[in-house]
Design a protein around this nucleic acid. Structure first.
Lengths: 339, 339
DNA sequence: CTGTTAGCGCGTTCAA
DNA sequence: TTGAACGCGCTAACAG
């Protein structure tokens, strides 16, 4: 089979301990012996067994990442960036896709991460019980989604400020009937939708605009949900002249429905999204840009920091910058009135 | 610390081997003892250390997945689907993002998968040397991208047939000047662009249309590349009346440029893509649909099969169905002539 | 049906 | 600077 440490030791004429020290760059090995061992190891194609070394040392050099989705742009991008940081530091990444309730239950029942990882990055908000299970792993924990639990280092954005910018932009353009396509907080437990909604309410109140519940529809953070929500908004007795979608994907769904209804954007209806999805620029969507890859990379770096310096006080929360990106889907309301 | 097998054994008043057998559902344990052990294990929150058990058994119950990107829709979707199949079968997933040359070099230099996984799914085409390295792992290998190497089970689609359908559709609509936005085969070594291009040439020849090299531009399989390519096509002395983009993302870039040039789609220019990206429906793009998640799931299943029945002859190649999806970006050429 | 005995391949003492 | 001995936590082979 594949070479083991004793094979290398024998071939190099030294003991296994010396091979171990030499290959891991530990002191106490003469340069020439080290060079010799390195050469022999390369020749034999030797790589230390992770199972054996983590069993012996207690370190796994592996991090666990749990996510509610992987195929969706936001999560895929965060994961991509985090992986790059981890692998550059020599860490491997164990991925768990907990999208379905069964997968999630199975995961927390068995907790396959136990004794397998040095840290965990969560792209979902665990409930209190799940959070406790993760804390019981006894490793550094981080998350990149709003609504962090005790014990997690949270990397995120100021959702309230971001949404405020988006809605205020519509108000400044002169819109008074502003709809919102939101997303439910459940079952993900995240605070993002709550904060973005609060900002919407705050801006309206600030501008002296009465809140009309009929203008607020759930879009479930998907393109299809956005379509359904926009359809519902158009069916209102007095449809909105502008819509704030809490995510770009929902905004895209809304745009599609508007196009089907032969309503011009932004002439008849303005639309602003949130995220700056990779395709937002392609369709000219005005949106709130957040550094998605940046959040994944930052969370990974923070985790590595804590691994390097276990005693340092970990940051509780790291705020990443956001900015409103003006494109082509927002304009002043049509003077001829809605529709 | 966390409980070990001997803690459970002691608490249950049995030996460690019995605990091991009981918890893994092996025969040779009385029902009452098994129940008793299960209860004790649950109480202590015991989970077997993967490092220790894989060291002892040689099985890791982990699969490795290597990918050139994770954030891009295609790869994220394949990964998502594959993960679901693997985790349902009790396998964990080690993810390696080999997008950058450095990451890729680092990976194949150290081959961190050695002794760590029971199988490997590759979402990229390794070169001959890399393929040999993977074969040396001695585990089942599969891939979901065209251009498989020796030793890999390939799950994919008939790229030639798919592209043929797309281009023939344009020809049937009456187009004679048909451009193509293609992608380079390098550095991914995949055969996909080669086959899609050949189909394009074959259909043109079949229809008695001379091939004009000026109508063929590289778009690098990205949205931006698609924009550049479309810009170049429009600058041709006689621009095309229809364009076949080898991927939906390039098609989206092309659509954006057409919109900027105030050219109507499909009235002035028809566009057909390839993939059926999640947002293709949103923008009404006519395209060749391929089961992306299906390919990830199928590849995972085939790998699990080989793990279950190591002696069975593995399939060399599995073809997944494709179909042309007609939407709103294709129509007969404008009788008033191009533009 | 159950316990005992050996390793799996490494890292880490402790001596030399 | 090096090697021998030991143990990480578990599974497998063997005895009973």
């Amino acid at each position: 089979m594949t070479a083991s440490i004793t094979d290398v030791a024998r071939a190099a004429g030294v003991s296994a301990s010396t091979v171990s020290r030499a290959l891991r760059g530990r002191p106490g090995v003469s340069d020439e012996v080290r060079a010799q061992i390195t050469a022999v190891a390369a020749e034999l194609g030797y790589t230390a067994s992770r199972s054996a070394s983590s069993l012996a040392s207690g370190r796994t050099f592996t991090v666990g990442v749990i996510a509610p989705y992987v195929g969706r742009w936001f999560f895929g991008t965060v994961l991509d960036a985090a992986e790059k940081v981890f692998s550059a530091a020599g860490y491997d990444l164990l991925l768990y896709n907990l999208g379905t309730p069964e997968a999630r239950k199975r995961f927390f029942a068995k907790l396959p991460l136990r004794k397998r990882v040095d840290a965990v990055l969560s792209l979902l908000i665990p409930d209190e019980q799940e959070a406790a299970a993760l804390r019981s792993l006894g490793v550094p924990l981080a998350t990149t989604v709003g609504g962090a639990r005790e014990g997690f280092t949270a990397v995120g954005i100021d959702d309230h400020a971001g949404a405020t910018g988006a809605v205020r932009h519509l108000v400044n353009l002169g819109h008074r009937r502003i709809g919102m396509i939101s997303g439910a907080s459940e079952p993900l437990h995240w605070t993002t939708p709550v904060q973005r909604r609060q900002a919407y309410l705050d801006v309206l109140a600030d501008a002296g605009i009465a809140h009309d519940p009929a203008l607020e529809v759930d879009g479930g953070y998907t393109v299809e949900g956005g379509e359904r929500a926009m359809t519902e908004l158009l069916a209102a007795s007095r449809p909105p002249t502008a819509v704030f979608a809490q995510s770009d994907e929902m905004a895209m769904g809304a745009l599609r429905v508007l196009r089907r209804h032969r309503l011009a954007v932004p002439d008849d209806v303005s639309v602003v999204g949130f995220d700056d999805h990779e395709l937002a620029e392609v369709i000219g969507l005005t949106t709130v840009a957040q550094p998605v890859a940046g959040q994944g990379a930052e969370a990974a770096r923070l985790l590595l920091d804590r691994l390097d310096r276990p005693d340092a006080e970990p940051p509780r929360r790291v705020q990443m910058p956001i900015r409103l990106v003006l494109r082509e889907t927002t304009a002043p309301p049509n003077p001829r009135g809605p529709q």
